[in-house]
């Protein structure tokens, strides 16, 4: 296998031409458990732009994990359209999905998921193995990446010789060694103490700012969530709130983003409802309309299924 072409959704284009890293349109996911259908996701629409910093919050069972798996290409939707790195996952066979994950997505898990009996540098190099990179280059790139996460001095240490924080740094290096478009972190600080967790979070934010990798993070921690530039809240399989924090500098005006500034209701012909309009129907579509004051890349993301009372920061203005 040869070195794949860099995903065409990289954020190195002019802002106005940016292609979303991930685009989900009315995505649903239904599981069959003992013959009973369980709707884990019920029509989620959202867009992740290159460089985004998103916190995905919601109670247990709200569908966060399912959404994460879908956004990461580990799973495929049972309904709707999901485009990762410009490729519609419903059109991809499992091997192509694997390649897509390898090229586009980096994962960081709560439980680290490092290979035991395997050195840090080899753990980090693992994704490059499946990309067909030569052993020497793998080691070079993995070592460089470990340097960036502050573990340049621990290349040949094994996971059981490292602290939790160090292990998670190795995992972050592994996620980023392929230079993905999106870094998906599932409770990355969940197994760490608060000091270590805070340092790790800073590292993630720094990498997000430096490399332009979109950071999508599932978290229970309100403080962590508050630091994200955008916050997506889920409940009962739908997105109930999607807001961009004001702290995030607008990378482009909404007017420059014709592909994303339309409310999702236009996209799938649903009747548009104002954010404030009360509705007992959880699926009622809504979103940030044209000229919405939120701005920023976060404003480019449309979310359907928003429940008015769950919108924590309407308009994204504090």
């Amino acid at each position: 296998m040869t070195e794949p072409a860099v995903a065409d959704s990289r954020g190195d284009r002019p802002a106005g031409e940016r292609v979303p890293a991930i685009e989900a349109v009315d995505v649903s996911r239904t599981y069959q458990l003992d013959g009973v259908s369980v709707e884990a996701l019920r029509g989620v629409s959202l867009t992740v732009q290159p460089g985004d910093y998103v916190a995905l919050v919601g109670p247990s069972g709200s569908g966060k994990s399912t959404l994460m798996h879908l956004l990461g290409g580990l799973d495929r939707p049972t309904g709707g359209r999901l485009v990762i790195g410009g490729r519609d996952v419903n059109a991809l066979a499992p091997p192509e999905m694997a390649t897509l994950r390898n090229e586009t997505i980096g994962f960081v898990f709560q439980a680290f998921h490092l290979l035991p009996r395997t050195s840090a540098v080899e753990n980090v190099a693992l994704p490059l193995v499946y990309r067909g990179v030569s052993a020497r280059q793998r080691r070079e790139r993995a070592a460089a990446m470990l340097g960036r996460v502050g573990l340049g001095h621990r290349l040949d240490h094994r996971p059981n010789q490292m602290s939790g924080g160090e292990q998670q740094r190795v995992a972050i290096a592994r996620a980023l060694v392929t230079e993905p478009t999106v870094l998906l972190a599932d409770e990355p600080t969940g197994n760490l103490d608060s000091v270590t967790g805070a340092a790790l979070l800073e590292l993630l934010e720094q990498l997000n700012a430096e490399s332009g990798v979109a950071l999508v993070m599932v978290t229970h921690d309100q403080e962590v969530a508050a630091r994200a530039h955008r916050r997506i809240t889920m409940r009962d399989g739908v997105v109930v709130a999607d807001s961009a924090a004001s702290a995030h500098p607008p990378s482009a005006g909404t007017a420059d983003l014709p592909a994303h500034d339309r409310p999702p209701s236009v996209d799938h012909g649903r009747p548009a409802t104002l954010v404030s309009a009360p509705s007992a129907e959880p699926r009622s579509a809504s979103g940030s309309g044209p000229g919405h004051p939120s701005g920023g890349s976060g404003g480019a993301a449309g979310a359907t299924g928003r429940l008015p009372h769950d919108v924590e920061r309407p308009g994204g203005t504090p």
Partner: peptide, 8 residues
Amino acid sequence: LRKAVGAR
């Protein structure tokens, strides 16, 4: 994990 990082 191997699948997540791109093993077919």
